[in-house]
Design a protein around this nucleic acid. Structure first.
Length: 106
DNA sequence: TCCTTGACGGAGA
DNA sequence: ATCTCCGCCAAGG
């Protein structure tokens, strides 16, 4: 993995995430596949971690395969993501989102 | 190099 | 439905 290749991957991931429409959510695994990086779900988390605080990219629309927020329950990050989802009109109950918001395809 | 750490995912129990 | 355990794979020490 050269630095350039890593940057390309990160760009691809950010792009895919930027396409997730409001009111919909996706999973790390799905984003990885759509970015042409099957099996690199963990890398998606790494890529999102690189986003600047003020980013416009909807990182909060990415959940784990169980439809749960991948931050420790109650942590600042967890609460931020949860409130952002609610602002999107996404139903979050017991830390899990309603399946109807899942499965987005361009 | 070797070892540990994840914003993961899937199979079992 | 919940919780472990294990495989995965790039990064960072």
């Amino acid at each position: 993995m050269t630095v350039t290749q890593a940057n390309e991957r990160i760009q691809a991931i950010w792009f895919v995430v930027s396409q997730i429409p409001k009111g919909k959510v996706s999973s790390y695994g799905q984003v990885a596949r759509m970015a042409g990086l099957p099996g690199l779900s963990r890398y998606v988390g790494y890529a999102l971690k690189q986003l600047p605080e003020e980013t416009e990219i909807p990182w909060f629309r990415v959940l784990n395969s169980q439809g749960r927020i991948s931050f420790p329950t109650g942590s600042p990050a967890y609460l931020r993501q949860q409130s952002q989802l609610i602002l999107d009109g996404v139903e979050v109950q017991q830390g899990k989102v309603n399946l109807k918001h899942f499965g987005w395809a361009p």
